[in-house]
């Protein structure tokens, strides 16, 4: 009796030591790995060119920004249930409202579209050059999917509703860029860059004007 218990104990200890060793050598997955969900991975698909556009945009200032946007709407199922039953049949812990809070990181790209420059914009006389450039504009506001962080997502949200919230983030970023007078900074920088460029091209007297 005693011998058989001893034998079982030895087998258990040897098995435990064996498992421990195999785990340490990474031959078997850990307990957490066995029950962890496989990561979501997309399939390789081709990238198709839809359109190619010629540009001449002088990017002078980029603002890196982070904004928080949220949206709330009433959950129609909960409201209907509470209205019909006088609040008796509804789950008191279920939220009455669907809520989403997103944190968006992106960039506001400002610069001058040199394609809008007219033929008469450049005037040269000996070692003097005078250039009139178009005024700076917001060329792009970029918030890519990798820039969004979902902080709270409660209830059911349609893709259209999510898109509307994301567009709100872009508008917020635009407003903040305007408040920070990014366009004025972009104009000043464009003048400075064009002056340096023309001076490096051999002109001693350089005048840069910004279109009104």
């Amino acid at each position: 009796m005693f011998r058989s218990i001893k034998a079982i104990l030895i087998i258990i200890v040897v098995a435990a030591a064996g498992l421990f060793l195999l785990r340490k050598l990474d031959f078997i997955p850990s307990w957490n790995q066995v029950f962890s969900a496989a990561p979501l991975e997309i399939d390789e698909t081709p990238v198709l060119i839809k359109e190619v556009r010629e540009l001449a945009s002088l990017i002078t200032v980029t603002g890196y920004d982070e904004v928080v946007v949220d949206s709330v709407h009433a959950d129609p199922n909960q409201i209907a249930l509470r209205t019909l039953t006088g609040g008796l049949a509804a789950n008191p812990f279920a939220p009455m409202f669907d809520r989403i809070v997103l944190v968006a990181k992106g960039q506001v790209i400002c610069g001058t579209d040199l394609k809008k420059m007219s033929d008469s914009a450049i005037r040269v006389f000996d070692d003097s050059a005078s250039v009139t450039i178009p005024k700076a504009e917001i060329l792009d506001i970029i918030i890519n999917p990798s820039g969004f962080e979902t902080f709270i997502e409660e209830g059911n949200w349609s893709d259209q509703a999510i898109t509307a919230v994301k567009i709100k983030a872009r508008q917020k970023m635009r407003d903040r860029a305007m408040q920070q007078q990014l366009l004025s900074k972009a104009n000043t920088r464009a003048i400075s860059l064009m002056t340096s460029m023309l001076q490096a091209s051999g002109f001693e007297k350089v005048t840069i004007n910004v279109e009104r």
């Binding site: 190619v52 556009r53 001449a56 603002g63 990014l182 860059l193």
Partner: peptide, 15 residues
């Protein structure tokens, strides 16, 4: 809002 000065000339856009 962090502002960074740039000096890039974008010449093409692929959609």
């Amino acid at each position: 809002l962090t502002i960074r000065n740039m000096n890039d000339l974008a010449t093409v856009e692929y959609v």
